[in-house]
Computed example of a mutant assay.
Amino acid sequence: MSETELQTCTQCNQPLPKPEFHRSDRGGRFRKCRSCRAATRKAWRETYRDKQSVYRRRFKLSRYGLTESEYDFMLAAQGGVCAMCGETCVSGRQLAVDHDHATGVVRGLLCVKCNRQLGIFEVLRPAAEEYLSDYGAGNPHISHGEALRKQRDAPRPRRSAATSKLTEGDVAQMRARYAAGGVTQRGLAAEYGVSQNAVGLILRRATWDHVA
């Protein structure tokens, strides 16, 4: 039979091409078209939403060998909060069942954040413990900030960002010329390409004071 032949949907009564009908396990095609089947499934989900939620919860708990009453008992024993951080789940979701991935033993109920972080910790735990054993007291190959303290305590020349393009020779020459007279701060600023205020700071040794 050609795929271009038509088939009438038993729900919408529309004659449609055969590809508009899903294939069945028996080798034929379903009697309802794709759109009608999708609408039927959607209507069923909306009608039995609560029942589906119950079924999903039971199925998830069964993976850990738990019943709903056991889960509720654990939750009440924890005061309704995460066993690690003592908070409710920020996402609004149910607390997750935490279990030992090696043995399958259920340990407690955790929020999504703690459950995820604990899983990462367990994977990294051997390497983390070895690292802290070797470097917990500090890295033996560095001076633990001694070089930084010396650098911080050492006198540093005061320079202005506005005059960073000047050299020490420029600064010395600028001061000598101004002391000799015949040139203004405005003139020096224009000549060296800096502001008049920057020139004044240099001349008063508020900046570049390390230059003799």
Rank of each mutant, 00 (worst) to 15 (best):
M1V: 13
T4K: 15
E5I: 14
Q7W: 10
T8Q: 09
T8W: 04
T8S: 07
T10I: 13
Q11A: 11
N13I: 07
P19V: 00
F21R: 06
F21N: 05
R23W: 02
R23N: 01
R23P: 01
R23V: 03
S24H: 08
R26Q: 11
G27Q: 01
F30P: 08
R31A: 12
K32L: 11
C33N: 02
R34F: 08
R34E: 09
S35R: 15
A38H: 13
K42W: 06
A43I: 03
A43V: 02
W44C: 04
T47V: 06
Y48P: 06
Y48N: 14
R49M: 07
R49G: 04
D50C: 05
K51Y: 12
S53H: 13
S53K: 15
R56W: 11
F59S: 13
K60H: 13
L66G: 00
T67G: 05
E68L: 10
E70A: 11
E70V: 07
F73V: 08
M74L: 07
A77T: 05
A77D: 06
Q78N: 05
Q78H: 08
G79E: 01
G79P: 00
C82V: 04
C82K: 05
A83T: 09
C85W: 12
E87S: 15
T88G: 11
V90H: 15
G92V: 04
A96V: 11
H99G: 03
D100A: 08
A102T: 14
A102W: 12
G108F: 11
G108I: 07
V112R: 15
V112Y: 13
V112S: 14
K113F: 13
K113S: 13
K113C: 09
C114M: 02
N115L: 07
N115P: 06
G119T: 06
G119A: 08
P126A: 05
A128C: 10
E129T: 09
P140W: 04
H141F: 14
H141Y: 14
S143V: 08
S143P: 07
A147G: 12
K150Q: 14
D153N: 14
P155H: 01
P155N: 01
P155V: 00
P155R: 03
R159M: 03
S160K: 02
A162G: 03
T163A: 06
S164N: 05
E168S: 06
G169D: 10
Y178I: 04
A179N: 07
G182Q: 04
Q185L: 02
R186V: 09
R186F: 09
L188H: 02
E191N: 03
V194F: 03
V194I: 11
V194Y: 03
S195H: 04
S195L: 03
N197R: 15
G200D: 00
G200H: 02
I202T: 02
I202P: 02
A206N: 12
A206T: 06
W208G: 00
D209S: 04
D209Y: 01
